[in-house]
């Protein structure tokens, strides 16, 4: 068989673009065809403010599972070592400064893939239910600076159709008592609330994922503390010391492996030792390639905004 025929046969069977994607692409084209309609000028945030906001934030791994875990869900807990770290993290978070959650949360991160010298800046807007409203990427400038107005890369685009599908999962309605919060998160996971449409997998994983997304948003201290406490009750969560984020900052990580033949991914939430502020996350996936593939990130900025695509 000739190689081109072989390639043709191996061509991934991809779905056609969604109507929403086609509409979004067409809208961008129409907007470009109308030079009179300009985007509102974007005011860059001073670096110091960005760092302050970053320091206030704790975020976590967001993981999608495609595998089923056999162990009964919702039973058991994190390892004793992880639970100890999370107890300390909760106590520290509880004394954090008051934060008012916004309608949307803006997150800017530095991202690096294994074996690639180039780092990316990634911007994400989360809805108040913790699902993703928009995402975009641009190239990194010297020293971790992000050229967010770089027109050539992947400009942020809206995801999903409606802006607020689950107002009932607004973070401001989440209980701050750990047991009530745990019950609520597992119940939400069972009913598909507070998830991205394609989040699938066992409830333990959905809860882990959801907590990861929530921790990444600006949150009231008592809720952040409760999320750490809940994380300590999710089976399979372990602690990894001496981890580094995409900036090379030393941290302590909370890790969870999918532990399935079909999905060997391991996701780590990297926190600063002592302060437990979020530093970054690490995903390791062994796909049978010569070396496992790694995605490593570092948080640059997080802030509350009032609409998607708005920058603080």
């Amino acid at each position: 068989m000739d190689e081109i025929a072989l390639l043709r046969e191996a061509a991934p069977d991809v779905a056609p673009p969604t109507d929403a994607a086609l509409r979004a692409g067409r809208d961008r084209l129409t907007a470009a065809a109308r030079p009179a309609r300009r985007w509102a000028p974007r005011v860059p945030r001073p670096a110091a403010l960005g760092l302050l906001a970053g320091a206030a934030a704790v975020a976590a791994a967001v993981a999608i599972t495609m595998a089923q875990v056999v162990a009964p869900e919702g039973h058991g807990s994190a390892t004793a070592a992880a639970a100890e770290v999370l107890r300390d993290a909760a106590a520290t978070a509880r004394n954090g400064p008051p934060v008012k959650p916004g309608v949307y949360s803006y997150i800017r991160e530095l991202v690096v893939f294994s074996g690639e010298p180039e780092r990316q800046c990634q911007e994400t807007w989360l809805r108040r239910d913790g699902s993703m409203a928009a995402v975009g990427a641009s190239s990194e400038q010297a020293g971790g600076r992000c050229e967010i107005h770089d027109p050539g890369h992947r400009p942020p685009t809206l995801r999903g159709d409606d802006s607020d599908r689950h107002p009932d999962t607004d973070v401001s309605t989440l209980p701050t008592a750990p047991s009530a919060l745990r019950e609520r998160l597992y119940s939400d996971a069972a009913h598909g609330r507070g998830q991205n449409p394609d989040d699938k997998g066992p409830r333990d994983q959905l809860v882990f994922t959801r907590i990861g997304r929530l921790l990444r948003m600006p949150l009231p201290p008592e809720l952040r503390a409760a999320l750490f406490q809940t994380l300590a009750t999710v089976p399979g969560v372990d602690v990894v010391r001496d981890e580094k984020d995409a900036f090379g900052r030393q941290g302590i990580a909370l890790a969870r492996s999918f532990g399935d033949q079909g999905n060997t991914a391991r996701v780590e939430i990297i926190l600063a030792p002592g302060t437990y502020r979020y530093l970054g996350m690490k995903t390791v996936q062994d796909m049978g390639a010569p070396a496992p593939l790694t995605r490593l990130s570092a948080l640059l900025t997080t802030a509350a905004v009032t609409r998607p695509l708005q920058r603080p």
Binding site: P12, D13, V14, A15, T18, A21, A61, V62, A63, I64, M66, V111, F113, Q122, T124, S131, M132, A133, V135, R159, G160, N196, P197, D198, D199, K200, T209, G212, R213, A265, V267, M281, T283, Q285, M287, A289, L293, T294, R295, S297
Partner: peptide, 22 residues
């Protein structure tokens, strides 16, 4: 292709479209 997709999805950064099967 594959690692970009999988890793980015596992990172949760592109996980807002119903594209799981693809």
């Amino acid at each position: 292709t594959a690692r970009y997709l999988l890793l980015e999805r596992l990172g949760g950064e592109t996980a807002a479209e119903p594209v799981d099967s693809e």
